[in-house]
Nucleic acid binder design. Structure first.
Lengths: 244, 244
DNA sequence: CCAGTTGGCTAATTGCGTTAGCTTTAAGCT
DNA sequence: AGCTTAAAGCTAACGCAATTAGCCAACTGG
């Protein structure tokens, strides 16, 4: 009986793939173990808990989106870049519903342990606010994202609580940076770029979520509706750059 | 030992409230039973399963949003009505995260039974497409929504499978109608109103989802970002009504 | 007052996450 | 090569949540 040769990264990756197939809520330790040709408890040698597995998938997914978005925007600028990015995101989300669902993590199940969350929440976001970057260098984010995946993934999946979340925050930041870079090319006032990034993210995420859940009646015109959403947003962004 | 005097509606309502407190995934039969002063198995006298409970909550929630949106738009028209509606939705979503989460149901867990879903998916949405309604009569939807809640809620929670989903579809349709009515006041070409409704819904839902999940760094400027999103969308809608 | 339905209870089953403790593999080290 | 040791698998077992079966008491309508 030779060993299966598993490691945290392999487990998390297989978990992500499985989640894409059966849905994140359908991802079960037993199912994943079976997929990997191993008995359920063996997984705990690589992943500390199901929640940690989710965290690992979230980290993987955050890196994925960052890369996908960056690639999509390469060589483009302005509205065209935004459209390409939005298209790429939707494509990725539909292709990877499990990973996509993993990227949005409920705030610790809305119970106790509010203490640990407070301290970290306020500071780590300030960095992104000032980076009034210039467009076009989206590829830079991709390089960073392609780096040492293994170490971080192990950390996210292996650590008990906050360490993985911190890592996810960082990687998500990098993905957000791609949005900021691209939106900077629209000529928005600097203090509005963050708002625009949130708006675009919310729009893309919301649309993908509704679409994945079958929230739209007939599927034939969904493409057009998505284009309409993105185009409207772009037009709205650029129409009144100095509003309010 | 007097009886607890429960009925399906009471159970579903309590379930919705509990879900708002502990999150939809934190809603458990045992917890709900405890809340209602009853032992777990007793709940099954009123609700056929946990999934059916979720369905019942979804129905309740769909009715809630419809009502909330309709109320918000009363007496307003044009961009102002859209803003009011969007504000009301966000408020409701933050106030009722459990109900909100329940409104978006995964497509039968992405496994088997694809057969039953096919037949119903294509037809029942056609009705909404033609209703090129005039704005202002939003209150009409509210009346309908306020009607026989009890019967429908019981059906949704009590029935085994599809009957509840059908009911939900209908009620969601009514809520959507409010969106359509309000958006009709923006002067969009009729064939774009559906697209706009989807866009607005996706934007609101996505923003609320990210916000509830703590997806934004510092919470202080989130209000402004939301306004920016909605205003951009409105501006985009009206800026190029005959686009493409 | 009685019969029947109904709502609630206890007991028991199943599936899943997780822990404990044993065993063997596969590296190293000498 | 032989020995040691940490890691990776395995089996057994616990706890919790969903669900079912079957019993009994409490309202309901006559």
């Amino acid at each position: 009986m030779p060993r299966a040769g598993l490691d945290p990264v392999a487990v998390v990756t297989a978990g992500a793939d499985l989640a894409d197939e059966v849905g994140l809520s359908g991802l079960t330790m037993g199912l994943l173990a079976e997929r990997l040709g191993v008995r359920t408890p063996s997984l705990y040698k690589h992943v500390v808990s199901l929640d940690a597995l989710h965290r690992g998938i979230a980290l993987l997914a955050a890196r994925d989106v960052g890369l996908v978005l960056a690639r999509a925007a390469v060589g483009k600028a302005g509205p065209e870049a935004v459209r390409a990015l939005a298209h790429a995101y939707r494509h990725w989300a539909l292709e990877h519903p499990g990973r996509c669902a993993a990227t949005v993590r409920p705030p610790a199940a809305a119970a106790e342990k509010a203490a640990a969350a407070e301290k970290a929440a306020a500071a780590e976001k300030a960095a992104a606010a000032e980076k009034t970057v210039t467009a076009g260098k989206a590829a830079a984010a991709a390089k960073t994202a392609a780096g040492e995946k293994a170490a971080a993934a192990e950390k996210a999946a292996g650590d008990g609580k906050a360490a993985g979340d911190e890592e996810i925050r960082t990687v998500s930041e990098e993905a957000l940076q791609v949005l900021l870079d691209v939106l900077a090319g629209l000529g928005l006032p600097p203090e509005r770029i963050i708002d625009a990034a949130r708006a675009l993210r919310a729009a893309m995420h919301g649309f993908a979520g509704l679409e994945a859940a079958g929230g739209f009646g007939y599927p034939e015109d969904v493409d057009r509706s998505y284009d309409f959403l993105i185009d409207s947003l772009i037009a709205g962004f650029t129409a009144r750059p100095a509003d309010q």
